[in-house]
């Protein structure tokens, strides 16, 4: 029982004899991730003040993805977890992407038709 616990906690020494049943994240890493998230929040706010046209949404989403990855990997421990957990998340994200992508494709393809006949639109 103690062998796997010792193995998983080797990344963070000095637990005072406690051998937790899982990986322990060091305070230093937690704080680093936290301040990175804060800095990225400031960056995304500042970038949104600039008018970059199409790149505004791309920059905002790219920063959001980076922030989300940091939260998932470090705060949510996925970096040290079983890959099965990542599989559950990746599957969900894949299907959301498919859902949004295909729905957008469909909607975009009939927009020109709708614009020709505004009377057909309704509220």
């Amino acid at each position: 029982m103690s062998t796997p616990a010792t193995q998983t906690s080797h990344a963070d020494h000095g637990h005072g004899g406690v051998h937790p049943a899982g990986h322990v994240t060091s305070v230093r890493l937690l704080l680093t991730v936290y301040f990175t998230l804060v800095i990225f929040t400031i960056i995304t706010y500042s970038v949104s003040r600039l008018d970059l046209g199409q790149f505004n949404i791309i920059a905002a989403l790219a920063i959001a993805v980076i922030k989300a990855s940091l939260v998932v990997l470090y705060f949510m421990h996925l970096r040290w977890d079983s890959p099965f957990n990542a599989l559950a998340l990746i599957t969900a994200i894949t299907f959301v992407a498919l859902f949004i992508g295909l729905a957008l494709l469909d909607s975009v393809s009939y927009q020109p038709l709708l614009k020709q006949t505004p009377a057909a639109l309704g509220p």
């Binding site: 637990h15 049943a21 899982g22 322990v24 994240t25 305070v27 937690l30 991730v33 470090y74």
Partner: peptide, 14 residues
């Protein structure tokens, strides 16, 4: 989120 992650760490270390 930070305090929650810190809380998990504290629970692990009793």
């Amino acid at each position: 989120s930070l305090t929650m992650a810190w809380g998990v760490r504290a629970a692990q270390l009793e």
